[in-house]
Amino acid sequence: MIDAVLFDLDGTLLDHEGAAGEAIVRLFPDVDEAWLVRRWYELTESAVDRYLAGELDFVAQRRVRIVTLARELGLGDWDDARADAWLAEYVALYKAAWRPFPEVRRVLDVLAGRGLRLGVITNGDAAQQRAKVEAIGLADVLPYVVASSEAGSAKPAAGIFRTACAGLGVPPDEAAYVGDRLVTDAQGAAAAGLAGVWLDRSGSAAPEDLTVPRITTLEALPRLLGSR
């Protein structure tokens, strides 16, 4: 029996890649768009991994992305002041592009209508992640947000999943967790005792050795969870 459903935020509820891509293209309109978006994604993933590992703080992980990209674009070595000025523009554009995936609100309303407790478990800075939930109009249905910057651990570690369950007052085996990353989200949640669900919007074939349920749209989640 599932009493609570928890969600990843970026890439699951909020179209983070779309927002980041829109922002970076506007700031470098003369650079090949496909390469730029792909490279910015790679730099972001690397920097965030270093932040979650404690190697960089939140500000430094942002700076290293643009300093590296600027160097690769032949723009020289940027100091902190120049990087921070650029980042202020980027963050403003990124925030303006925050949007939920189209089906998100409908699905959350269905689950809330069943009496399920809903929440978010997210890797990242708590203030920014809560601001995203608010900005995309989901704070009323997702008031409970656990972020790695406050939880003392980050996905896929079991601690953050168990902390979230404890906060909702449900044992892990009565909670489901849905995310767009197989290892970090679905398998990490399953290892912590939750029902991990992989949201794979890629449309590619599922791995043959998949050990968690896979859905290709959140619209499939209510049926997967069954009636309560």
Rank of each mutant, 00 (worst) to 15 (best):
A4R: 02
L6V: 08
D8C: 12
D8W: 08
D10Q: 02
G11R: 04
G18M: 13
E22Y: 10
V25W: 09
P29R: 03
A34Q: 11
T44L: 03
S46I: 00
R50V: 00
G54W: 03
E55T: 11
D57I: 02
A60K: 14
Q61T: 05
R71V: 12
G74Y: 12
G76Q: 11
D77S: 15
W78A: 02
A88I: 06
A88Y: 04
L93S: 00
K95C: 11
A97W: 09
W98N: 12
E103C: 14
V104R: 10
R105N: 07
V107Q: 01
L116R: 10
R117N: 00
L118P: 09
T122E: 06
A126L: 07
A127C: 11
Q128E: 11
R130L: 12
V133K: 03
L138T: 12
V141I: 10
L142G: 02
V146K: 01
A147N: 01
S148K: 10
E150W: 04
G159P: 15
R162S: 08
R162I: 11
A164L: 15
G169A: 03
D173E: 13
E174Q: 13
T184G: 02
D185I: 11
A189E: 03
A189S: 00
W198R: 07
L199G: 08
S204K: 10
D209G: 09
P213N: 06
T216Y: 08
E219F: 08
L221P: 05
P222C: 13
L224D: 05
R228S: 03
